[in-house]
Every structure is written in C-alpha cells, then in structure tokens.
Design a protein around this nucleic acid. Structure first.
Lengths: 126, 126, 126, 126
DNA sequence: GTGGTCTAGACCACT
DNA sequence: GTGGTCTAGACCACC
C-alpha cells in the first residue's frame, strides 16, 4: 500500500495519517470505500496494531474517515468534512511556509510550478 | 513581544522558534540586530531560561541566529544561511498542504491571494 | 563503554559526542545499530540523563544518529549524512593543525605514519 | 594586522590566539620580535583590552610568547617551546580529524593536497 | 520501556 | 551582565 520511514522524526502514526490523507485527496481512495482492517494493515506494514488504530482514530477525528463497529473503517464523503476551520488553519500555515521559502530564495517561477503540481495532485474541482 | 500557548501540543521552544523566524523573515528583526537576552525574555514570557535558550540554540542551528558568549544573540545575515536542502523540504511540504487545502475547497482565487500575502510577509530582497 | 573527564574544560556532552563519533567512524557501531538508552547510559556513566540526551541530540543534528520516540537512538547510514560543508571545514582545520605540528617539530615521516593510522581508524568503504 | 569574526562561535580571545600562532608559525613574526602592546592592539581591533590580555596570557602559557614587565610581549624562540607534550596532543587530534574526514568522503588525493599546503604554510624544516 | 519537554536553581566562561 | 553547561526531578508522547 505504501512505505513508512522508521528513521523519520515524525511519529509513525502521523506518517500513516498523512499517507492515507494523500490517497483520499488524490482520489485513489473514494468515499465510502473500506480501508484495510487494523490487523491486515498491521501485518502488511509490520507495525504495531495500536499504532494503526491510533492513525485511524486521528483520521476519524479530522473527518476523513468514519468507522462502523464490527464492520471497519470507511472514507468520508467530502460533504461530511469539517473543512472551514481546518481550511483557515491550513491557509495560515501555507502562507507562513511560503514566506519562509521566499526568504530562503524561492523564486516566483518555483512558486508557480509548485501551485501547478499541487493542483494536479488533487482529484477534482470545487 | 508575543504570545505563547503553554497548553498547546507544540512545545514552547518550538513556538518561540516559529515566532522569531517570522519576525526575521518579515524584516522586523534585521541582520545583526540583538535579540532580548535569555534572562530578560525568560522574565517577560514567564518561561524558564533554559527553554528560551533551547529556542535560541535551535535557531542558531538552523542558521537564523548567531550567539556570542558574553554579548548576546544576534540575527544572521541572509548570506550566512544554508538554505538549499531546507528549501527542497519546504517546497515538498507546501505542495502537500496546498493539495489538502484544494481538496477541502480552496479555490484558485484563494490561492492567488495566499501567494500575494506571503509575498508581502517577506522583506523580499534577492 | 568509555571514560569521561568531568574536570575537563570540554563539556561532558561534547566529550560524549566525540567518543560516539569515533565509535561510528571506526565501524564499532554499525548503521542502524541501537545505542544504549538515555537512562541506561546515564546510569553507567553517572551523568544526568539530560546531558546524555543533549549529546544524542547534537549527534542527530550532525547526522550521525537518528532517534525514534518510543524506540531508541540508532546509528545513521553514511548515505544520510550532509558531509559537504562539514568536510570543507574539517579540511581547513586539519591544515592549520598540521602546520602547527610541523612548526613544533613534526617530521614528514611522522606525518606519513599519522596518515596511515587515521586510515586504519576508519571503516573506509567509499 | 588581521581580522576577527565576531559572529564565530569561537571566543574572540581564542581567535586571537590562533591568528597570532599562525603568524609565528608562518615566520611572519620572528623570535624575539615585539608584539603590539595590549592597548594598541585593543584600539586597532576595537576589542576590549582584557580580551587581548587574555590572549597574550594564553600564548605565554602555551610557550609561544614571553612577556617582560614594563617592556611588552615577545615571540619565543623555538627552543623555548614545550613542544613534546603538545605535539603528542596535536598528533592525536589531527589523526581523529583525518579519520572523520575520510569517513565523510575525503579521498587520498585530497589528503595529499592537504599535506602539501600545510607544509607550505610553515616557515622551515626541522 | 523509550525519547522529548520543561522547571528550578547552581555554577562557569566570556566581555 | 551575557550565554553555556549541568543536575535533579517531574510529566508527557510514543510504541
């Protein structure tokens, strides 16, 4: 499914969260699609089940997943996402990072390229 | 000087690092300008001196500050920064965040606005 | 594991950094090998855990180690090191020291011997 | 006479020590030659006289200078230098640094070049 | 169990 | 007075 970097300073559960988010955002995982069970994914990635659980819980809290007891974890429909607050946060964060990158020498061309690539990474238009 | 959220998940020293970085990037703190001493800032923010120093040390490691033992901490000139590897990382991170934001409903207009504001946030002499 | 001189002018954490570096360079500690935990080493050396951690953090910043939160500290693979800037600094430093040593009577034969011994001290696969 | 880098993490008095050593080693300052007085040098470098004093004291302790009360500071003759202990220390230090440099990718050619340059930097043959 | 953060307070080195 | 180091001891996050 994907790779984890045990060396990274970023906790494994957080890496998992990010990767799954990417799959959802890119449209590879579609709304109401079922995710692999904690046990299966735990086996595939040779990661402690608790860690997988933790990641799923986090994604649920952020609105990307919903879980049904006894059945599994599923991708949320876009309508069910918290979006607004989160979006504000994201915008602020992006702004800060861009400012830092420009300070370190990022050119306008680089920035344009960045925007285009980010655009391609998303499934659709809103 | 600025506010800290002691209850945040983000460590205090990291909040400090981010705030000071912003001040440098925005040009409010200029190269070779002296920062408040560890003890003074510690008093103003009611934070342990060690925590302040931890932040200053981190900023030094990242190239934003330099410190002179009996004299104080000072803002680095842009020329003295490492930049390149860091810039690559930043670009990747920005890309991911923008993709997520678009998924959550960010429009192209929003994006343009974001770009402009980020630009204003930097002193921007290159 | 090794000895520290608490009376030395050189900070304990720096002595630790140097010792561990040597172990890595000489190949006694191999990539991905786990280092003694902060608390264990702290106990063995009768040094405060914070001081050990300071050393580990420094080694991480220099690229010699990576740390995983609930697991431990591990030796980095050579590929993951920054090297270039650092190497330039090192060369300059070595040059100065050799010049001083020659002034104090170091012969060309001594120098050759030095070179060979240094070579033996490295694992030396490039 | 020479330049100091206030930004450096190395204390100013230590930079002074190194610079003066270099001048002696390279033969620019010759045995029994008088050094500028503390006051004069302090004025030229816009550095606190105490700092200059500290550097001279250090150089005296290391055997590079001798001072005569009321007259000034003078370069020691080579014969009067402690050499042996110091040389052993230096050798060990050089060895360690070379080992590290090789670990980081220094080639044998680089090393040879280094040796030659260091050789040129010294005044004479012993 | 592991590393990471923070505080309180002491002492040293540099200018 | 400045930064730098170290200790003692507490609490949190991750696995």
């Amino acid at each position: 499914m994907f790779q984890l970097d045990v060396r990274s300073r970023k906790p494994i559960y957080e890496q998992l969260v990010d990767k799954i988010k990417e799959l959802i955002i890119s449209g590879i995982l579609t709304p109401d699609e079922q995710l692999p069970s904690v046990r299966v994914l735990s086996g595939q990635l040779t990661v402690n089940p608790n860690t997988i659980q933790r990641a799923y819980r986090e994604l649920e809290a952020q609105g990307y997943l919903y879980s049904i007891k006894g059945k599994g974890n599923f991708v949320s429909a876009i309508e069910h996402m918290p979006s607004n607050d989160k979006l504000q946060e994201l915008k602020k964060e992006i702004q800060t990072l861009i400012a830092e990158a420009i300070y370190l020498g990022l050119t306008k061309e680089d920035l344009h390229l960045l925007f285009e690539r980010a655009n391609q990474k998303t499934k659709g238009e809103h």
